[in-house]
Design a binder for these strands. Sequence first.
DNA 1: AATAATCTTTGAGCTATATCAAGATCGTCG
DNA 2: CGACGATCTTGATATAGCTCAAAGATTATT
Lengths: 269, 269
Amino acid sequence: MQSSNHSTSANNTNLASSEPQDHRSNAPVVKLCPHSSGISCGNCRLNELCLPIALDESEMQQLDDIVERNRPYKKADHIYRQHDDFKSIFAVRSGSFKTYVLSSSGAGRVTGFYLPGEIIGMDGIADRVHANSAIALEHSSICEIPFSQLESLSLKLPSLQHNFFAIMGAEITKDQKIHTILSSYSAEQRIASFLLGVSSRYARVGLSPTRFHLPMTRGDIGEYLGLTVETVSRLFTSLQKKGLISVDNREIALLDKEELRVIIGADEF
Amino acid sequence: MQSSNHSTSANNTNLASSEPQDHRSNAPVVKLCPHSSGISCGNCRLNELCLPIALDESEMQQLDDIVERNRPYKKADHIYRQHDDFKSIFAVRSGSFKTYVLSSSGAGRVTGFYLPGEIIGMDGIADRVHANSAIALEHSSICEIPFSQLESLSLKLPSLQHNFFAIMGAEITKDQKIHTILSSYSAEQRIASFLLGVSSRYARVGLSPTRFHLPMTRGDIGEYLGLTVETVSRLFTSLQKKGLISVDNREIALLDKEELRVIIGADEF
DNA sequence: AATAATCTTTGAGCTATATCAAGATCGTCG
DNA sequence: CGACGATCTTGATATAGCTCAAAGATTATT
């Protein structure tokens, strides 16, 4: 189905294995090239936003030693799939991913989008099995951090333990925010909130908060927000007509962020 | 407003302070009675479901030393409120709590329910400020675990660090499950899923999975599931008419769990 | 470059759930 | 015990967003 692919969390810990026992359609057959790039946490432009926040030189070096930098993922490549054994978490270095669960009806349900500097895979920590699948939305690259090694290192580096608790805590806070959005916001509020959220996540990594490219389809956004494609599309059109955003396919410009915030907080009186 | 209350995460670390600077209406004025009960992690019947899982005697003792066992909470007492400084996490020992965020319209939004053996307060770990409020649904008691001390101790006790990572991971997995429920389930599926969820959580602590008391109102359930009170009420009635459950005010009996599961998975073909 | 597949938009009608309203029941407190 | 406030139920109606449908745009494949 594909000429190449990646090892996954379930099987790429053993880098020597060139023929991993993979039960999936697009089975990886190419061996990994860790450390092939000259990239390290120390020189990564995301290091202040990622796991290494506030680590000193030596600490960062120790973290760096357990990080594996897999070769790039093509669009639609999976990092891991639902029910795979949990072995690692992954930091997005470039590109973007979505996570989703499958409902056998085929109606996949998107559970999250991940942009550079964000961590994927924490859904597997509790049960040691991934609760969802993670797939690249575009050509992307990640850093793989074997979890057991992260645990060991966290025992030695208080800052690292602290950072990882904070990262997991942020995931919890984020998920609860979405809970509120899904349980109480109108379709228009959901879309406004989604766009502002993406905006600030791009801003976080130094990209424009007002003009950006959406890596996901309208359908993905709909699944994530509990809306249909049609509703998402209609609302993009409607927000554009109101002059709040400009839409050119997946190129979005936020023209009036303040008013978008008003939409979200409109029930707040 | 009330004759007594509790210290909160924001101010009860200093047990000596009998007059904490509290900005809330029902300000605590009674000093705490830690260790007043003969209770310890070692003899707590929940210790296999809580933070101490798989800790040995000595480890459990060390954990025990940092745990503060506050006096009971009355119905409607807050453990902490939105925007309070984050200092501790809390394990429910008995009773139950809900967490919620306020939308100034007064329409509070319930973000979670917490039963015995479950951990409250992880919403504050990332930002060091609580993102929601936690309030007792009935007469309840908790164990308070100061977070900075938990962090320190986790550096010394690998099992404790491991457990806490797992507990946070479980919270993430749970929140993502709810995401899926809210974004794709019908009202009936949400209610069925909620009832089965409560059932297995009661089973976890050794209570009946088929007959239980709901500590929360229909309105709470509605806010949590993104439904109105009326819809929740109608569905309870409807599921009862179908013979799947029996409802006597807040006393619930699950008469046909298998069929409830079918309802949830009904789109799975 | 041509074709196929996927994604997006727009319209028209439908339905699940919200909203509004009113009564019934429960729990609490004087 | 009696009464008030909170909670729950049930009915009637409204509507936001879904479903179905079809055409246009974009992207991928040969």
